[in-house]
């Protein structure tokens, strides 16, 4: 299986009030054809910025400081906006985190889906387009599609908006789907339906997916591989089994411990002590060190590199260093 998407040492910075935000720090990732890669991480750690840099939809002030984004063997890092617009339609689709802002309040839902259909099938007649809109809305589980397609985004419930965004995305025929929290507003039954639908479409079209999600149940269901992000960096990657059954990074371990399933019958939920560091003032060494009760002296001095645990499993924690395992690392 080849890689459809490769990210190499990507760093993104955003100048802001009071300093520069290091939103993405030296991230390397690959996405294989037909695979689902889930990105999980602390809120504000740069997941959306990472997706947006792939799509070239970064905020104006943001700069890609270094690194490469390679799609199907072609480096797209330096492409102009115009070239990128074309690519976006053909290759990528992006499900924005926040469906309300992704939808245009001045246009009906139907019109927005129609626009997306027309990017690919320019010579469809009116009847055919209408039929396709209804088909897509039905596909994402919206009842009475004919009436609902005449509504505006603010007239829909949160979950319906999210499904409309999905319908727009599915109207085009992307090779790579970047889905940023695509199911957070859905009840669990519709969520289950949508996840199965995406999986189905993925198989049929050999689509590859990057899924950003906080919902570990969703990740467990759909992800082939998982990347854990903390303070702008990927700190652990592995198969879903690697991450769920033998998490190696202390942040990943803390995250899994915070799930309510692990606090059944207790009064408070387990949490990770402390707060994530500001991306404007990153500490020296491992950014997670100050929240890690088992941090080593070296954690406060030097950032750990990625250590290989198995052919599929990597993590950036000094505890994985051979020297530490053998004696200790001072």
């Amino acid at each position: 299986m080849g890689n459809i998407l490769e990210i190499k040492n990507l760093s993104v910075k955003i100048p802001a009030h009071g300093g520069t935000v290091s939103a993405v720090r030296d991230v390397s990732l690959e996405l294989k054809k037909g695979e689902t890669l889930a990105i999980v991480g602390e809120s504000g750690c740069g997941k959306s910025m990472l997706c947006k840099s792939i799509m070239k939809l970064l905020p104006e002030r943001a700069v890609i400081e270094s690194g490469q984004i390679i799609v199907n063997g072609t480096d797209i890092t330096g492409l102009s906006d115009r070239e990128m617009t074309k690519l976006r339609g053909q290759l990528f689709s992006y499900v924005f985190q926040d469906p309300l802002s992704a939808l245009d309040p001045t246009m009906t839902i139907g019109r927005q889906i129609a626009e997306s259909i027309l990017i690919h099938q320019r010579n469809l007649g009116k009847e055919e387009i209408l039929a396709r809109i209804n088909e897509l809305l039905t596909l994402v589980g919206i009842k009475n599609p004919e009436e609902r397609s005449r509504l505006h985004s603010y007239e829909l419930s949160g979950g319906m908006r999210q499904r409309c965004v999905l319908a727009i995305v599915l109207a085009s025929n992307p090779r790579i789907l970047l889905a940023d929290e695509p199911t957070t507003a859905l009840d669990v039954t519709i969520q289950a339906q949508i996840l199965d639908l995406l999986k189905d479409i993925q198989k049929k079209r050999n689509m590859s997916t990057v899924l950003v999600s906080h919902d570990m149940g969703v990740v467990a269901r759909v992800a082939d591989r998982v990347a854990i992000m903390y303070a702008g960096k990927i700190v652990e990657t592995g198969t879903a089994e690697d991450i769920f059954y033998s998490p190696a990074h202390p942040y990943t371990q803390g995250l899994l411990k915070s799930l309510p399933i692990n606090s059944r019958g207790k009064d408070v939920l387990e949490t990770i002590p402390g707060m994530p560091p500001s991306l404007m003032r990153l500490p020296k060494g491992d950014a997670f060190a100050c929240r890690n009760p088992k941090a080593l002296p070296i954690d406060f001095i030097e950032e750990p590199p990625m250590f290989k645990i198995s052919d599929s499993h990597f993590a950036a924690s000094w505890t994985l260093d051979k020297r530490y395992k053998n004696s200790n690392l001072e």
């Binding site: 991480g41 929290e181 906080h214 387990e270 990770i272």
Partner: peptide
């Protein structure tokens, strides 16, 4: 109304606490 669905699980846990 859905106050915690947009944050990661450790912050969800903090907010729920």
């Amino acid at each position: 109304d859905e106050p915690i669905s947009a944050v990661d699980v450790s912050i969800q846990a903090q907010l729920v606490n």
